[in-house]
Write a protein that binds this DNA or RNA. Structure first.
Lengths: 141, 141
DNA sequence: TCCATTATACTCGCATGCAAGTAAATTGCA
DNA sequence: TGCAATTTACTTGCATGCGAGTATAATGGA
């Protein structure tokens, strides 16, 4: 097994490369790449429940709890009780959080274009198609 | 920014999917996916220095130290002093480690085929080509 | 209605991943 | 040769990611 041929190795390193790239782009907002993407989801729609945010971000609750702790400490989000279902909480953007979330969305969109600029249009289409196939149909275990 | 279009999100989730898949395959050896790949590198060539192993696995020394600690605790590897350069250490596979490393290499190779079986041959070629381009040429920051 | 099941968000523990810094050894240049 | 710069492996601290388990609340079927 040579690493060049190992798709698990290649995906790990490509993920790390892309994540480092985005991290540098959003470091000007004092955010990690994951925090920036969570704020991006909230920029699209906030006041959703933690469970719903977890579904959209595809993160389990153990991971999301910690991320929300740090966003809350930074003053970007707040947890509010949900009268409709007292098990759940709604995640609200603060005034400052809303501004940062909009900036994060803009930076992420720009970073996407820049990161992929070395690929041809056909390669970009192929990449999205391949990832879509893998995420939908790759065997699970 | 919709998550479907965000390459950082897609790479993160594809990496996590592939990593979970490999983790399940190597769990029968009581290894994590990363530990299995490190043993795979040592199966190809052991008694290399920690620095050399880090270069091949593209891991920094802080991460590698912890992984080697756990492989050593499990009885698969040993650190030996390197008389040629007393700053460095050589990583040796134990007898048990050599057997597990061979098994790990086999499982990884099989898992590669199985994970990618939903892709056409052309898609596999395109995927490797795209990843290669990104890893060589994507902007760094 | 009652209770088992499910859903929600939480905690803990452990494994990466990486930035930053350290001590020891080596190297290379003046 | 002598010393500054570099290399090596290590530590600490923090951020994900996830398995496992918990307490509370909601739900659904007998």
């Amino acid at each position: 097994m040579q690493e060049t041929d190992c798709i698990f190795f290649q995906f790990a390193k490509t993920y790390q490369l892309s994540s480092r790239f985005l991290s540098q782009k959003v470091s000007e907002l004092n955010l990690t790449s994951v925090q920036a993407m969570i704020l991006g989801f909230l920029d699209a729609e906030d006041q959703i429940t933690s469970s719903e945010l977890g579904k959209r971000a595809e993160l389990d609750s153990a991971t999301l709890t910690g991320i929300l702790d740090r966003l809350e400490t930074a003053g970007f989000t707040e947890r509010k009780g949900n009268p409709d279902d007292r098990r759940s909480i709604r995640i609200h953007l603060t005034k400052k959080g809303r501004e940062i979330a909009r900036e994060a969305s803009r930076v992420i969109a720009e970073a996407n274009k820049e990161f992929l600029q070395v690929l041809s249009e056909e390669q970009k289409r192929n990449l999205h198609s391949i990832i879509s196939t893998l995420r939908l149909s790759a065997p699970r275990g």
